[in-house]
Nucleic acid binder design. Structure first.
Lengths: 209, 209
DNA sequence: CTCTACCGTCACTTGCGGGTGACAAGAGAG
DNA sequence: CTCTCTTGTCACCCGCAAGTGACGGTAGAG
């Protein structure tokens, strides 16, 4: 109707975003659903994006899917003084930022089940995050040689991804409520304690194996 | 053909298991696929199980979906002497046991996306695991009061679930390879270091916040 | 043997999503 | 004005999965 390709593309992308945001478990994104939601004929999705796969790719590129290190830092005001609290704040901020992004949570959940255009994008974004976090935090701190800090961060990031994505549906996980502030605080504290312990205990020079 | 209801039900359940086991991302389990795989008419699924939902429920009840604490313990020979190594071995064994269960990994991945009969079963099995682990490990050890050990275990279990489920498709996660022994060892060591650090650093009486 | 309950097969309808071809309408170039 | 390119609409085909109704055959009870 409006005869404006750019606007139409915008509407389509927005519709996909809306569906993903409220998908809370419904699964099955389809061309028909997106087109209907956008109030547009589905053929335009094929014309402008080359089908669902292309649409996903375009969406993934265009959308603010992942928190930046800066955002995570802002969320928790990273203290620069010591490594452990800095990392703890970073991971806590990462977790909190994920929770604020429904479509990202959906993408993470989706990513567990199948590989598609979004998966690749997520991989690249994670890699980006890792680089940024490294340059931001590790440059100015000494890491105890005994600790494979990268593996520890992978463990904590995996936990954050899992807890955030699972938390969007409510419920609890191994005795911790995922959908209320009390549970969130318990997790934050646990993350802090883990990083404190790993870094300081290792720094004390004790053998861990 | 065989005119044996029990056997037919068995074949159907086995077919579902096979499909889930090799589903590696294909998604979309359906009555038709299961029936075809079992070499059986799909109407029998409706008659005997009341549809796909009932079939999933029956499957979930009947199948060995979750490692027992005993199994995890056997996988790593839990040392009884000290709490940290005992817990580390337990979590490592849990992770290793998960990796050995393709259908469980599929169920975990699935559980992230939608709730169904399997989800509830998983919830109950996790709860069971938590109880067993508690009675098995915590009874004979003193836990530092400052540590919310339950939250820490939830974090590590979430990481294990996520890394195991994601690892089934290969790839790496924040710089750690998920599908080779080197990556596995790095993760095991990180888990051990985390538990050592959390428990011993806390035991030293230091404040963590 | 005969009847009946149960097991398995076949055929069919329905609905939905993916994907495509053909057409109508507006906008700009000449 | 006319021609042409682009945008949007409509109508259709195709494949597939869900779900159902009816039928045939077999085993066991009496």
């Amino acid at each position: 109707m409006a005869r404006d390709r750019a606007l139409t593309e915008e509407k389509i992308l927005a519709a996909l975003g809306a569906i993903l945001a409220e998908a809370g478990g419904s699964r099955r994104i389809g061309v028909n659903a997106v087109a209907a939601r956008a109030g547009v004929d589905k053929v335009l999705i094929y014309r402008y994006f080359g089908g669902l796969e292309g649409l996903l790719a375009a969406f993934a590129e265009k959308t603010d899917l992942w928190p930046t290190v800066e955002e995570a830092a802002r969320a928790r005001a990273i203290p620069e003084t010591d490594l452990a609290p800095a990392l703890a704040a970073l991971v806590q901020g990462y977790l909190a930022s994920l929770r604020r992004r429904p479509v990202t949570l959906e993408a993470i959940a989706w990513d567990m089940g199948e590989r598609n255009a979004l998966s690749e994008r997520l991989d690249r974004l994670r890699e980006q995050w890792r680089r940024d976090a490294t340059t931001r935090v590790f440059r100015q701190h000494k890491v105890p040689a005994k600790v494979d800090i990268e593996a520890v961060m992978a463990v904590l990031a995996a936990a954050a991804d899992h807890l955030a994505a699972r938390g969007r549906l409510g419920g609890s996980f191994y005795g911790v409520a995922l959908d209320d502030p009390v549970g969130h605080k318990r997790l934050d504290d646990a993350l802090a304690a883990i990083l404190e312990g790993v870094l300081n205990y290792a720094r004390a020079g004790k053998e861990s194996n």
